[in-house]
Design a protein around this nucleic acid. Structure first.
Length: 303
RNA sequence: GGUGUCGUAGCUCAGUUGGUAGAGCAACGGACUGAAAAUCCGUGUGUCACUGGUUCAAUUCCAGUCGACACCA
């Protein structure tokens, strides 16, 4: 049943552009709620380094998917797709517009167009593959994949260990070729989707990134990271702002250098986000200050 | 003041037995369906400090100038 009066408004853009503030303003205007699509703000232990909305902002508008996980939990895009869709069903009972805000392009796409169904990975087998990668190198993984799934091998980036590992893992768990199951099809959703991108001229964005990193340090980022030191091997902590402070805590670099490195990594991350968002021309782009224009646009589009 | 070493990409440096130069990092561009703030790929952007000399040809050799550092006074 297609519910044409329901709209998911996606608000995205590079890190530090000012998505949170805009989303809160819009959600207040429509008296609605916010689904976060930020793969690092999920974790309750990571607050300062992920620039989560502060308590005041969280009190203004109901947010979902902020701090609902522990860094010790296993999570992935597919689960996010399922959980976000379940939640959207509920939210659309009360709201015509629901806002999804975040910078994790893959997670946004999973909600908007879906992701193919695969069984959950087996941790033991994943570790086994990782062991092979470490002991025998990339070439061994390539050799394994070309035998199991030559079609995928021909199209995949064979220098990217993550891609190879993933494909091998799926072949093993399902007993079928990865390429036969990777349909890359678009699923129909029971709501309309409106995509808004926020961006700023590069120098302005970069200066905001610098300021925000300085602010994180003032807000005691180092303390937060220090408390997570025992868990540094966890995937959640393979994150900009945390990696660099770990190096500082290891006395490999000075704090000053760590701060410079965080700014650099964040700029590069912002660029990667933009590359992802520009894959499609589905986004209508605004500057974060154009709240009136965005509001008018939404009013016009959401009938 | 004297002697020595150095001055090459945004940064750290390599190199050319004389034929106008290349690595890492940064920067810039891109890919990406269960790790995605992850992971991976591509691109060299240059008055080789300056001025003169030798030479067919100088970033390279020689002299001077300037600058940095070290040591000696």
């Amino acid at each position: 049943m297609l519910n044409s009066g329901k709209y998911l408004v996606v608000i995205t853009g590079p890190t530090a552009v000012g998505k949170t503030a805009v989303a809160i303003q819009l959600a207040k205007i429509w008296n609605s709620e916010i689904i976060s699509a930020d793969s690092r703000q999920f974790y309750s232990e990571m607050t300062i380094g992920t620039a989560k909305p502060d308590q005041h902002q969280l009190d203004e508008v109901k947010h979902h998917f902020i701090g609902q996980l522990s860094i010790h939990d296993y999570y992935n895009v597919s689960r996010f797709e399922t959980e976000a869709l379940e939640l959207l069903d509920k939210l659309f009972e009360k709201h015509n517009l629901v806002f999804m805000v975040g910078g994790s392009g893959l997670y946004i796409d999973a909600v908007c167009r879906g992701i193919d169904d695969f069984p959950d990975p087996e941790p033991e087998y994943r570790n086994y593959l990782k062991g092979i990668y470490i002991d025998e190198g990339l070439a061994k993984l390539q050799e394994m994949l070309v035998k199991l799934d030559p079609e995928y091998y021909a199209t995949v980036d064979i220098n990217n260990p993550n891609r190879l590992l993933r494909a091998l893992e799926v072949c093993h768990v399902t007993g079928k070729k990865f390429s036969d199951q990777r349909l890359n099809s678009s699923k129909k959703r029971g709501f309309q989707i409106i995509k808004i991108g926020l961006n700023l001229p590069r120098p302005e964005l970069f200066s905001r990134i610098g300021l925000r990193v300085d602010q994180m340090i003032e807000n005691k980022l180092v303390e937060e990271v220090k408390s997570l030191l025992p868990f540094r091997h966890l995937n959640a902590l393979n994150t900009v702002g945390y990696k660099e402070i770990f190096e500082y805590l290891d006395s490999k670099i000075t704090l000053e250098q760590a701060i410079i490195n965080i700014k650099t990594s964040t700029r590069r991350y912002a660029k990667r986000q933009l590359t992802w968002f520009h894959r499609t021309d589905e986004y209508k782009w605004f500057e974060p200050s154009q709240l009136n224009e965005i509001t008018n646009y939404l009013t016009m589009v959401c009938k």
